[in-house]
């Protein structure tokens, strides 16, 4: 899906796109992302003016509104440094979605430039930095939900590689693993019945294994799944892959909490 040839970056200086969901709800995920990147030797820059990637409007079909936001993103994330995002779907917005909606726009070249240096976090760790093994131990049975925006990208395999390199983690296969969780951005509010059914089905499959953690690289999926789980009164911890990696590194004494 990442149609542009990616340059493996020479420098470890990166720009962090924290995502609007982390900005609003999941500060610890963004924090873990910084900690993991710094452990990996990166110099993390957080451009203050960042807001959102433009995906909500893009998916809703309001491309005009979305382009306005993407133009802001281009303003904020200038230069040559890789832009690293702890979200498969926001990354895909950067390297794929934006290209679609700018196909006929004069600033398409700038969009392409940004697209070619946009990385999802685990993809960046594995394919950008060459990390294969995470030190430390996390004793947990983990159900990893491969979010849909990682289809056809390096994200799914990268996340699985990193998780399974952590001592003590057992990845659980579950039924219909390839199926969508039903989030889909605006879809989740305009098709609430179908979205709910899809979410419940996913949760049923996940809970069948009784995992210790439900993990993903997309907080959108976890916001939706977690919301259904919480509403039903059941309990299952959700974690972003960055948080699990961070926990392992803390356990190994590689970083401080």
């Amino acid at each position: 899906m990442n149609t542009l040839d990616r340059q493996v970056p020479a420098s470890k200086s990166i720009q962090l796109m924290a995502t609007c969901l982390c900005d609003a709800f999941f500060d610890d995920v963004a924090k873990a992302t910084v900690q993991v990147l710094e452990w990996a030797g990166c110099n993390v820059e957080f451009p203050e003016g960042q807001t959102c990637c433009g995906q909500p409007a893009f998916n809703a079909g309001d491309w005009k509104a979305s382009r306005q936001v993407v133009r802001h993103v281009m303003d904020v994330f200038q230069g040559e440094k890789p832009v690293v995002v702890p979200s498969g779907s926001c990354a895909a917005m950067g390297f794929h979605g934006a290209l679609l909606e700018f196909e006929k726009e004069p600033d398409l070249p700038q969009v392409k430039q940004l697209a070619s240096r946009t990385w999802e976090l685990t993809d960046y760790l594995v394919n950008g930095l060459g990390i294969e093994k995470i030190p430390g131990k996390v004793s947990a049975r983990v159900s990893f939900h491969r979010s849909c925006h990682s289809r056809g990208t390096c994200t799914g395999p990268s996340a699985v590689k990193l998780l399974s390199s952590i001592e003590g983690i057992e990845l659980l296969p579950f039924g219909e693993q390839e199926q969508c969780c039903g989030f889909g951005g605006a879809f989740s509010v305009s098709f609430p019945n179908i979205s709910k059914k899809m979410g419940e089905l996913k949760i049923e499959h996940v809970l069948a294994d009784n995992p210790d953690i439900l993990a993903s690289v997309d907080m959108g999926c976890l916001l939706h799944l977690g919301g259904i789980i919480d509403k039903s009164g059941r309990e299952i911890p959700r974690k972003h892959v960055a948080q699990i990696i961070r926990d392992a590194l803390v356990e190994a004494g590689e970083i401080k909490e």
Binding site: C20, T51, C52, G54, P56, A57, F58, N59, A60, G61, D62, W63, K64, A65, S66, Q68, V69, R71, H72, G97, L100, E101, A186, V189, S190, F191
Partner: peptide
């Protein structure tokens, strides 16, 4: 996605039902 954009441009009502309007969001996010 292309057809969603087309629906929006052509003001198709049943397409936008339940989808939050994005103008305010776009303003804030920029």
């Amino acid at each position: 996605l292309c057809l969603r954009d087309k629906g929006k441009r052509e003001g198709a009502k049943n397409a936008s039902a339940g989808t939050p309007p994005m103008g305010m969001y776009a303003m804030m996010a920029s």
